[in-house]
Design a binder for these strands. Structure first.
Lengths: 105, 105
DNA sequence: CGGCGAGGTTACCTGTAGGTGAGTACCCTA
DNA sequence: TAGGGTACTCACCTACAGGTAACCTCGCCG
């Protein structure tokens, strides 16, 4: 069943903050951990790291560590991660086409 | 931030069985409750109903009740629900393009 | 009469995602 | 010497999605 492929995709995208992270990275290119922290006020360190790790292991974002005196770690979308954006756009379009504002009552 | 639109979409699609339901309905058109139950062996009644109700309230599936002697209820994708399929296809394509089989180790 | 199948509802339990708060190693600055 | 910034880790707690199992109504079949 074709659902399995999409389920895989959805699994990778699911997580309270992943989309937010992805959009920030798409928007600003490369961000340090602390920059992400500041860019996304609602998220806790633990969860942010968690979601970043998952995105990394799924190959969506890349993590670059600079072995410096004060640690420095940069995150950015992988090439493949960027390729996801058209799909997200289409999904966005689809939600926009929702008939008669079924905003939740 | 545009993420919010996609988060909405993701919220509607997220749920262990929703994609499976959607694919079955897309594939076979219209299905009765018991047909769905049989088509998706892993799901419990409670959860199946639950996900159907959510899909219905999000306007993705339509529910048709026939007030018959033994109850009969049919589910099918709404027009809008069917319009989601291209987006899912694109997502599917994207997952297919994943570089060097990062199947989870 | 007893049981089945339809499409549910209800009560209860569990696993896990997410949140909170603290601690850590290291160096720099004041 | 105290405190701050960086990128984390660890222990603990809670909420909720999902799973399990029993029950319900109504008619028909045997």
């Amino acid at each position: 069943m074709a659902a399995s492929g999409i389920e895989t995709a959805l699994r990778m995208l699911e997580g309270r903050w992943k989309m937010v992270i992805i959009f920030h990275l798409f928007d600003r290119g490369t961000l340090r951990f602390s920059e992400l922290e500041r860019a996304i006020p609602g998220v806790s360190q633990k969860v942010l790291i968690n979601q970043l790790r998952e995105l990394e292991k799924d190959g969506i974002v890349e993590r670059q560590v600079y072995p410096q005196v004060p640690p420095k770690v940069e995150y950015k979308l992988s090439a493949w991660g960027e390729q996801m954006c058209p799909a997200l756009d289409l999904l966005l379009e689809w939600t926009a086409q929702r008939p008669q504002g079924n905003a939740e009552t």
